[in-house]
């Protein structure tokens, strides 16, 4: 990093409604620490100061109030509001913005992101291993993004990911492909706990049976195949197959079944598993 670039502070986003998890995601525990505590401590090892982004209604929440807070100060909803509020509070610093639901986030991942940071771009973001798009909630947002985000929001924009695509953010390929896996549902939480206690990714490729239906069968040009892969989860596998076959459906539009039962995207795949991706249904 050159001496000229603005310093980076950390911003942990903990203002979300956690609707899919049905409980406060910031309070989920891994190895005896809440997600919020864990991500805060991780960020604090890499930047000088770290804040927690909250909505005004959350400032008295004991899990959050013990940290330095940045309370939403601009109108609107979603993570853009938190990012803009931080840029407004400290206009001369860049922000290492982190979602609090990233249980696999590592020191190495933050080191790589900060090392590859480009202050001339609006932001430096990892490419998601799942869909190839920039990941706005594990990214460094530069001071110059403040005015651009304001204009984007004024124009009706809400999605920080679309903002990054339009504003040519610097995209970094994550060396640790799992680092950005997030946890949104009770099933994904249970899977993450299992992975964290078991430890490692598959080192050797394994064989999976993939079956395709409907639009995906047509786009893959086959009904099934035996695939040799290192994909650890259905999410990884879909990223791999989407790159190969150009599937037009995003992962968010699909469900997945493993061995003929619905499964979470973070399920650990094992050799011989049969995987089916389920596009939007239309029975009846």
């Amino acid at each position: 990093m050159s001496a000229a670039q603005p310093p980076a502070y950390g911003l942990i986003l903990a203002g979300g409604a956690s609707t899919r998890m049905k409980r406060d995601k910031a309070q989920l525990q891994y190895h005896g620490k809440t997600q919020l505590d864990r991500v805060f401590e991780l960020a604090a090892r890499h930047v000088e100061r770290v804040f927690v982004s909250v909505r005004a209604a959350q400032i008295d929440d004991p899990a959050r109030s013990r940290y330095p807070l940045i309370v939403d100060s601009v109108a609107g909803e979603g993570p853009i509001v938190g990012i803009r509020s931080a840029l407004a509070a400290h206009p001369d610093v860049a922000w290492l913005v982190l979602a609090c639901d990233l249980p696999f986030l590592s020191d190495a991942a933050l080191e790589q992101l900060l090392a590859e940071r480009d202050p001339a771009s609006s932001a430096t973001a990892y490419r998601s291993a799942h869909d190839g798009l920039p990941e706005p909630l594990c990214a460094v947002w530069e001071p110059k993004a403040a005015a651009e985000l304001e204009a984007y929001q004024a124009g009706g924009g809400k999605c920080p990911r679309k903002f990054l695509i339009r504003h040519a953010a610097k995209i970094v390929e994550p060396e640790d492909r799992r680092a950005l896996d997030n946890v949104n549902t009770p099933d994904e939480y249970a899977q993450a706990l299992g992975v964290l206690s078991a430890g490692t990714l598959p080192e050797n490729p394994m064989q999976l049976k993939i079956q395709y239906y409907a639009l995906m069968r047509e786009q893959a040009g086959r009904s099934e195949e035996i695939l040799e892969t290192r994909a650890a989860t259905p999410a990884d596998l879909y990223g791999e197959l989407q790159a190969r076959y150009g599937f037009t459906l995003s992962r968010e539009q699909l469900k997945v079944a493993v061995n003929s039962e619905f499964a979470p995207w973070s399920r650990r795949l094992a050799a011989g598993d049969a995987v089916v991706f389920i596009p939007p249904v239309a029975g009846g």
Binding site: G15, G78, P79, A99, C100, P136, P160, N184, S250, Q253
Partner: peptide
């Protein structure tokens, strides 16, 4: 043509 970004909105 208009995928949802549920992931990006979830904090």
């Amino acid at each position: 043509a208009a995928p949802q970004h549920a992931h990006a909105h979830a904090t």
